[in-house]
Amino acid sequence: MEKDYGDRLAKVLTRIGVILTKSGADVHRVEDTMQRICKAYGASVIDAYVTPSLLIISFSFSDREGLFHNIKRIYTSSYDLNKIDAINSLSREVCVSPISLDDLDKKLDQIDSDHGYPDYTLVLAAALASFSFAFIFGGGIYEALCALVVGAIVMIFDKLVSKIELGSFLKNIFSGALLTGLSMIISNIFMVDRDIVIIASIMLLVPGLIITNAVRDSVNGDLISGITRAIEAIFIAVAVSLGSGVILLLGGI
């Protein structure tokens, strides 16, 4: 066993934790994955503590001296369920037959550099989602077509804004405002039900993922993460409502 084995293991483990947490995994899964992999690489006493913004791991080996830790602060998150899945299968593989730390690091590079679907596919997906939401909320084909356009534009705006790091609160205010303004203009031109167009496209901004994670964290007993995420969800909902409310006021309802 080489000399800096423990330190390198600690680094790789925090890297796995950071990718999982950023992609939107529940805290229990992150802690569990880190502990399992740590155990598979020979560590004995393992403690992992994860919140959506901080990640701590500490472990030691029974056959050698030293206590190893690593702490990582997490700032931004970009939800990507495919990465969670990829790391999950990687962890299954590694726990059965551990590969060298260099190989593990390379595999993590591979997972981390995968940016998922290209932007135009995301825009199409957003358009498709808001198109079908218009029908779900009782609209007709004309409302659905208007919602399709608005949904696509909201997604394009989201992708443009994510490059300049506006922060989640401001971004959601602007998205809500843009969506409401566009829906009002479009529904006036084509004489369709404004409310349905707005609701169908507002569903794109609703924090469903965060609510789900908040609940699952709370049920698992990770109350700090649960509360953090619940507050985040409320903040997003408030921001979106604020943005659309201001435009509704300006537009004279």
Binding site: D195, I202, M203, G208, T212, A237, G245
Partner: peptide, 28 residues
């Protein structure tokens, strides 16, 4: 695969975004 990844995109359509909008509308 993890349960969460199958849960999230199925749950999102149920979230009451419409009610949220009507709340704002009545407020205004």
């Amino acid at each position: 695969c993890p349960t969460t990844i199958l849960l999230i995109s199925a749950l999102v359509p149920l979230v009451p975004g419409g009610m949220m909008y009507y709340t704002v509308l009545d407020f205004i």
